[in-house]
Design a protein around this nucleic acid. Structure first.
Lengths: 188, 188
DNA sequence: AGCTATCTATCTACTGATAGGTAGACATAT
DNA sequence: ATATGTCTACCTATCAGTAGATAGATAGCT
């Protein structure tokens, strides 16, 4: 679970790999393309990440850790509303910055086709996101209900991202955020 | 828009291609694999579908037409509830049968990476699904509200599918369907 | 004769991966 | 101080495998 300490070059490779994987999935990256993008040879990428599976795993793990760090502690004294707002803005930012879907919306869809280790990291991402959201609800809600609401929120956001990317506008994401906020308010 | 009439062999190729694309996306199919699966040589697959783009386009178009045909006329005299129930069951069936995500949940995520023609078909799928659902709501709801609700429902279902596949259980889909049904009832 | 559906054979381009080499930084031991 | 060993971060060169695509031949049907 601890943050790995990557060398500057390795980090650069992970950056490029993440960008590409978010647009086209695990197969959208190749050692040669990554190497060219960061100015080395493909063998050097293998030096940092022996096999492609290692690279994929590292990209997803780093992504998960970064998102969770940005969200902060779900049990701290911020209001539930402000936590949810932050959650929504993380999704919106991901879409607008990268012009691409959440890394795990992409990889989640192709989970049946991924190397086992990579798929496990993806699953971990989703359970972490649902867990965070569920914990945020615990201030005001019973555990079972919190968990169901959390799962629904993460699902909806992921789906809205896919629709937004596929249709080329972020209207779906905004619409879903509005309706989710309404729904949550009604349920509390 | 008209149903194309594919030869038996072409249909067989489309079947296999769809199954694979639903698990791993557009790049998960290869002419050689498809050929082997249906018992011909790769050159023969090129005979039916000259380029890979043609094949992808055909798979998505056929998928869309099949789903819409299964849903029927959204403006007929069935109740709204029965139409939504049918919509939900179509998603559940897709997940349980194929052990894979909706074709367009997969392709939608990688839309930025697809050949233009294929991406256009995917977009058409989503707008058709939202359109169908929106039309179903028109019996009881104003157009603007109907459209927003419809978009949210399709988004949520797509996202729940992704989570279900990624976590290996259909709990997310069931949960989302329950909460959506609740939400819709509250909104009417 | 012409059409459909298939074949064989081949092309170029790219994939992940490995073997083996090199230049420089750093630490230790003599 | 200097020689020795080890580590990092790259390199060149190469491999077998697979990708999509094409040319040209063949057999059967209408």
């Amino acid at each position: 679970m601890a943050q790995k300490n990557y060398s500057p070059k390795a980090s650069e490779i992970l950056d490029v790999a993440e960008t590409h994987m978010r647009k086209g999935g695990f197969d959208a990256i190749s050692f040669r393309d990554l190497a060219t993008a960061v100015g080395v040879k493909s063998a050097s990428v293998h030096y940092h990440f022996p096999a492609k599976t290692d690279l994929g795993q590292a990209v997803v793990a780093r992504y998960r850790e970064r998102i969770l760090a940005a969200l902060g502690d779900p049990t701290d004294k911020r209001t539930l509303a402000s936590k949810l707002k932050l959650l929504f803005s993380v999704y919106t930012a991901a879409l607008e910055q990268g012009d691409s879907v959440c890394l795990c919306a992409q990889l989640g869809a192709e989970a049946r086709y991924l190397p086992e280790d990579v798929a496990a990291e993806v699953e971990l991402f989703f359970s972490a996101m649902v867990g965070w959201t569920s914990d945020a609800f615990l201030q005001q809600t019973a555990p079972t209900k919190a968990n169901k609401l959390a799962a629904h929120i993460i699902s909806s956001l992921q789906g809205a991202m896919v629709l937004s990317v596929a249709t080329g506008s972020n209207l779906h994401l905004k619409n879903t955020q509005n309706l989710l906020a309404e729904f949550v308010e009604a349920k509390l």
